[in-house]
């Protein structure tokens, strides 16, 4: 947990509000685990010869669940929880649905990557990664199964985790980063652009104030944190390209939020 603010100094109210908005990790974990278990069960029942009739009924969704497919379902479900999180944010609520969609279309992959990175930060092990379902996967086994592109992204992710571990990014700072990513003032054609710009500025100020208050011995901490955002953006862009490529080769499960987001940005 993050260190306490020195006596007499206050954690900015906005930062506390962001932490309040954070989702219950165990609840998200159990929801997603249950969803994936259901998918696997469905698949098993379909592959049993006794269930011929059921096979026919499910004929419209003849997806074979590969490890990659399972990961896509996991990312898809994580996206659902990201949308829920955004909806719980007071500043997000003030926007019309059209603007909300534009913001999410712009940043969904960055939020997914940050979610992954933040989980690895908490996990704190260099030789394994922690999935949103709570499963721990050996890094070596993951890299052995992945192709060149995916391996490169996993390694880039590990480097980013390592950077952030070096100065122990805390949960409050992570919560601020999520908001900086969501309220990106560079998103064009918003109905309420001034609101998004104002929220972005407020989050920046709150994060700066927070780092100076809680980590006064590291005056450059705020800049160091912000420097990681372009790296995160590069990684998320790579992940999108990779997903797009996999989608075109028919390896991404269809009819889900992940695909919808992928399409929205490309059209």
């Amino acid at each position: 947990s993050p260190p306490l603010a020195p006596p007499g100094l206050m954690v900015p109210a906005l930062v506390l509000e962001f932490v309040r908005c954070e989702q219950d990790e165990l609840l998200v974990q159990s929801k997603i685990s249950a969803h994936l278990a259901h998918l696997k069960q469905e698949q098993n029942s379909r592959s049993t010869p006794d269930n011929q009739e059921q096979n026919t009924r499910h004929a419209a969704k003849p997806e074979r669940l590969t490890t990659f497919g399972l990961m896509c379902h996991m990312a898809d479900q994580t996206l659902f929880s990201i949308v829920e999180w955004a909806r719980s944010c007071i500043f997000f609520k003030e926007l019309k649905v059209g603007d909300q969609m534009k913001l999410l279309h712009n940043c969904w992959s960055e939020l997914l990557v940050l979610d992954y990175i933040a989980r690895q930060l908490q996990h704190g092990k260099e030789d394994s990664v922690l999935l949103i379902t709570g499963q721990e996967v050996e890094l070596a086994s993951l890299l052995a199964q992945a192709g060149v592109t995916l391996s490169g992204m996993i390694q880039m992710g590990q480097e980013l985790v390592h950077h952030l571990q070096e100065f122990q990014l805390d949960r409050r700072e992570t919560a601020c980063l999520k908001h900086l990513i969501l309220f990106n003032p560079d998103v064009k054609l918003l109905e309420n652009q001034p609101h998004v710009e104002s929220v972005y500025e407020q989050v920046n100020e709150a994060l700066l104030e927070y780092t100076l208050c809680v980590y006064p011995q590291f005056p450059d901490r705020f800049n160091q944190i912000l420097l990681r955002l372009p790296e995160l953006r590069v990684l998320s862009a790579q992940a999108e390209d990779y997903l797009c490529y996999k989608h075109l080769s028919g390896e991404v499960p269809s009819n889900n939020l992940l695909i919808e987001m992928l399409h929205a940005k490309r059209t």
Binding site: M101, N256, E260
Partner: peptide, 18 residues
């Protein structure tokens, strides 16, 4: 394009009138 965004729109719209 609108059809592409149907799920996200639904997720953002739901419960709004409650």
């Amino acid at each position: 394009k609108k059809k592409d965004n149907a799920l996200l729109r639904y997720l953002l719209d739901k419960d709004d009138n409650v």
